[in-house]
Amino acid sequence: MSDTNENKLYGLVVEFGDSNALVKAAERVRDSGYTHTDAHAPFPVHGLTEALGIRRTILPWIVLGGGLTGCIGGFMLQYWVSVSAYPLNVGGRPLNSWPSFIPVAFECTILLAGLSAMIGMIALNGLPRPHHPVFNAPNFERASGNGFFLVVEADDPQFDLQSTRALLDDLGGAAVSEVYDD
């Protein structure tokens, strides 16, 4: 595992005992100019998104797109079926009796918006991905328990094993460890 000749360095990982220390550390790393960073915590930590400088996700736009597709598609389907594919005269009402088409158009809106929210979130997160180098970090199973991890990835333009390590050492977490791809 520590055979550096064959394995690519993924990054440096440091663990903290509580979320406040993690947020403070993340702010310092961000202010030092690192961008390829990440943090791992058992629950969404308040302020961590800003502390890491994470940009707002585009997910809401995807959901809006899904919802509009569902709404327009659902309505057009009913319009086409009722007016052109299978016109039925029900009590002399117009073929395009749009008020009756609202419930199904609404349900289609919710269905596609909900599916886009779920699938969009999973896809943007790059999941499912059973293997990830960060799982090699020592004690990483605590990331879903009571551990708070900060990662600086090796592909960060500022990354330098010695100086980055020195910065992380100074943050007050547990021992800094090098994590390799495999």
Binding site: H40, L52, T57, G114, M121, L124, N125, L127
Partner: peptide, 21 residues
């Protein structure tokens, strides 16, 4: 679990998705 690793980037999208749902 789909390989969930509690990444802050993931949590951010997760919270947005949960709120939208």
């Amino acid at each position: 679990a789909l390989g969930w690793r509690g990444s802050a980037r993931h949590w951010h999208r997760y919270e947005v998705a949960y709120l939208l749902l």
